[in-house]
């Protein structure tokens, strides 16, 4: 049985700074990293490899330099790393991205049965949380989003039980395998690669699947297959921090001001 981890190489958005003069993004020197949520997906796939003997495969769609991300997956211990890269895949929104990933998973399924596909709950650059459900729907897999704990996997009954973390509540859900699971950070603690694994991964083969391999209709992938497009990018209004009232002389007044501000911003659920 195969467990798949879908991972994405993203710019480290925590390193992004805004030029205070032009109010534009300073992209200089921003490193590319594995999407943090995806590293938890990767970790969970490795744990299933260890606990259930699944074969772990890492998949990533991206430009050729996303190979680095897949090498990290190899260093962490996946059995196979596959880069889905083609000129025609570029400029994809979530709908066409899930198309390519789902096609790749289907291709894998010809080799062996797929047990679980893990995705991060969202990426830090796009923040959409839509690719996971897209894959699940396209493949007809059970869809379990925002999972913070795998309670049980029953291979005999082909079910998985998970805990989902939702606003103000948790749900324990049982679903049929194969399943697509998106994970939150609390699920696990990603491992750090050992040096021998790192060195081995530098030489290991990252497979490249382009559209000659996947044979998808070019009108359903990349920019052409994307119903949404970005018409404009602009810098958000930035508010400087604000010191409220005189908390030393009038603490109650300052507290009232604060509550007012929070109410204005609709941040207080009262």
């Amino acid at each position: 049985m195969i467990v798949v981890a879908c991972i994405k190489q993203v710019p480290d958005t925590t390193q992004v700074q805004i030029d205070p003069v032009t109010n534009t993004l300073i992209r200089d020197g921003i490193p590319f990293i594995v999407n943090p949520y995806d590293s938890h997906a990767l970790e969970e796939s490795l744990r299933l490899k260890e606990s259930h003997g699944f074969r772990a495969v890492a998949l990533s769609m991206g430009p050729p330099n996303a190979e680095a991300t897949l090498r990290k997956a190899l260093a962490a211990g996946v059995d196979r790393s596959i880069l889905l890269s083609d000129r025609v895949f570029g400029g994809a929104d979530t709908l066409s991205t899930s198309n390519v990933l789902a096609a790749a998973i289907e291709k894998l399924a010809q080799e062996d049965e797929i047990g679980i596909v893990f995705c991060g709950k969202q990426t830090i650059d796009g923040d959409t949380a839509q690719v996971g459900p897209g894959i699940a729907v396209r493949l007809g897999f059970s869809q379990l989003t925002l999972v913070d704990r795998i309670e049980k996997i029953d291979l005999a009954k082909k079910t998985v039980t998970v805990r989902r973390k939702l606003e103000g509540r948790y749900e324990i859900v049982e679903a049929r395998l194969p399943a697509m699971i998106t994970v939150v950070r609390e699920l696990n603690r990603p491992r750090y690669p050992t040096v021998p694994m790192r060195l081995a991964s530098a030489k290991a083969q990252v497979e490249l699947w382009n559209n000659e391999v996947l044979k998808l209709d070019v009108n359903t992938v990349g920019l052409k297959g994307s119903p949404t497009w970005v018409s404009r990018i602009f810098s958000p209004q930035r508010s400087e921090g604000e010191i409220l009232g005189d908390g030393l002389k009038d603490p109650v007044g300052a507290a009232l001001l604060l509550v007012d501000r929070l109410l204005e911003k609709d941040l207080l659920a009262v």
């Binding site: 929104d93 979530t94 923040d127 949380a129 839509q130 897209g134 989003t145 973390k165 606003e167 994307s226």
Partner: peptide, 23 residues
């Protein structure tokens, strides 16, 4: 854009093959 909304919207948009903008 809640846990439930994002779970459902992502699935529906894929099925009806249309665009979905998150959050």
């Amino acid at each position: 854009a809640t846990g439930m909304g994002r779970d459902l919207a992502g699935a529906v948009a894929t099925r009806v093959k249309t665009g979905l903008t998150a959050d």
